[in-house]
């Protein structure tokens, strides 16, 4: 199963990935305040097709990692 990982302390909470995800599988994590002072994005845990839209729409170099195939995920 493809999936994404949000590296919490690299996220500025801009919400662009949430808006871009065709599967609506990313949400704002209102529980967490990261080191930068934002509520980061959070993968809902299912629904990712590995399209990569969130990765390319995210302005931060290291905030999102997309695993198109499951094996690489740790």
């Amino acid at each position: 199963m493809p999936k994404i990982v949000v590296q919490i302390d690299h996220c500025k909470g801009c919400g662009l990935c949430i808006d871009a995800c065709p599967q609506q599988c990313i949400e704002e994590d209102s529980e967490v305040l990261n080191k930068l002072g934002y509520h980061p994005a959070k993968y809902k845990g299912q629904g990712c097709t590995g399209c990569g839209f969130c990765f390319y729409t995210c302005p931060e170099p290291d905030a999102i990692i997309v695993y198109k195939k499951d094996e690489e995920a740790k």
């Binding site: 690299h10 500025k12 909470g13 302005p59 931060e60």
Partner: peptide, 12 residues
Amino acid sequence: GNTHYCPGCGHG
């Protein structure tokens, strides 16, 4: 590790 840009900035 992060850019200096504002959240949601197109530059990034």
